[in-house]
Design a protein around this nucleic acid. Sequence first.
DNA 1: GTAAATTATGAAACGCTTTTCATGTCAAGC
DNA 2: GCTTGACATGAAAAGCGTTTCATAATTTAC
Lengths: 325, 325
Amino acid sequence: MANIRHIAKLAGVSVSTVSRVLNGHPYVREEKRLAVEQAMNSLNYARNMNAVHLLRGRTDMIGVMLPSINHPYFSKLVEGISDEALQAGCRLVLCQTGYAEEEERNALHMVKEKQIDGLILCSKALGWDEIVPYAAFGSIVACGEDAGGLLPSVFIDHYASFRAGIRHVMSKGHTRIGLALSRYASHSSDQRRQAYWDAITEIGEQHREDWTFYDCYGIEDGAQVVRQLHGMAERPTAMLVTGDQVAAGMIAEAAKLGIRVPDDLAILGFDNQPIAHVLGITTIDNQLHEMGREAFRMLQVSLLGEEPPVSRVEIPFALVERTTV
Amino acid sequence: MANIRHIAKLAGVSVSTVSRVLNGHPYVREEKRLAVEQAMNSLNYARNMNAVHLLRGRTDMIGVMLPSINHPYFSKLVEGISDEALQAGCRLVLCQTGYAEEEERNALHMVKEKQIDGLILCSKALGWDEIVPYAAFGSIVACGEDAGGLLPSVFIDHYASFRAGIRHVMSKGHTRIGLALSRYASHSSDQRRQAYWDAITEIGEQHREDWTFYDCYGIEDGAQVVRQLHGMAERPTAMLVTGDQVAAGMIAEAAKLGIRVPDDLAILGFDNQPIAHVLGITTIDNQLHEMGREAFRMLQVSLLGEEPPVSRVEIPFALVERTTV
DNA sequence: GTAAATTATGAAACGCTTTTCATGTCAAGC
DNA sequence: GCTTGACATGAAAAGCGTTTCATAATTTAC
């Protein structure tokens, strides 16, 4: 493999000159520039970026931590991040963790080891206390959840969005309301539970633990929820469902079981994914694409160094009324 | 930032010894090992992987080239690749190209510049002639399409799968059949067109250019197709649709327009995505997850060097009969 | 015509770790 | 008591491009 020294020798110049040509610096005589370019061509030269990275102390790559890329929530988010990164000449390294803490640590370690300049956390299992120290080695930003002033964050106010969702559901006359959430132990689930409890309490109802389902991510999980509901003596008349995929699964299963949506069971989804569009699911749009873009922008300013008091950007949400509530 | 020399000095040993500790080599006296470990802790040391990469000439990262991650076809594929990569201790660098040739070249360039050890091509616009030379600098494997012996490939026999699809559609009595494809100029579209033409010719029908739609990727594209069909005097009674997202869009739009599926219009999807499950779309399962895994495995053996005569693995497909044909 | 400013170029240092080679110590074996 | 082999350790080179510093060659300015 040709290196810069080979080129220098072949072109009859010093490595400095080759480097200057490589980087488009001025102060290289046309005649030498040509000689260098010719040498590079004839040896089919490409510089070794690892040397550049070592020298610069920067790789122009950032990591994206998420449990799984094969979920529309995350792939939409990543697309947003990627779009913005592309413009900045920055590459994305996928860190699929499946919420395994060791994998999350590995991803964080990459910034300490300078493999990546920063990391965007799309969802995580680790506590902030274990994450924050890594911010000393690169920029780490939270995306989709507020890191509470510990790290720059782009997020949705899950409490408010859930309240808005419940308000809408209640406006249709529902008082018996259930929930399908993702992980039990996550900040967003906390907020959502709280919003649910507060709203339910306000109308003088009891919140029902048996109407609260966890670990709902995909279509199959939604189907499972409906099956369980079907077997209950007392059932909710409406469900708030985090993720349109899950809502879609519920709708499909409901159809099989002869449960009419929204008459027997109203369903409110979240994220406004394409599937919600097709199935006419009433949902809350979280502008995931924009959130991803903003996360990257935030990381970028954080990379520049002089950080102001840890920025926090809230992405607005919007109810998209269709036919399932 | 602490480096290995600082550690050596603080621990009172040579850098060689520190390196040995770092890499778990034997032949380090317990006492020195402890001193080194203590020094590393107190300086909060982590090695600079860029130096390691430079030295090794390898980064344990590979690129994944695709037009957009926000499409279930690709995110499923990437998940498969990622699962296998994780086991091999290899990271994935996302190369979203949007089919822009310059972006594709950039991705290829990364392997020449040793930023990545290899590249998996999930879909591309560039011709093989421009791609193949880069295989000299790292492993490049084609995933989803056969590179015709030029590169290791994992692929589906699109001709056969389309023939199987058409056979199924015809078995339900359809003779007036249309097509919704993705890019006009792609190997898979060529194969599919050919399968369609051959099948249509066999039953003595004419293939209809006006029933062939291109650039169909998402739900909205499917809706568009149905709208166009709706305005036609002569319509097909069945459509073969590459991608369940597109099929889903068609079904949703058909419902709006009062077109009954499958009675007025039969729809056969491809890929067996979750959305096909929910909507009961008859589809052809291409085992994308497995295809991704196989692609990585292939890249890995190719990385080992002694390549046998360019491996080619065909992934079998299977008809999943549901309710839309 | 000379001082000052530009333009050009190369040597050497730097960034950081791994690996090879040489050297040295110590215990086992005969 | 001396040779082997195993165990330990450090110096130095290698991997490769960028940048600083010093020097040299030209121009420009007055």
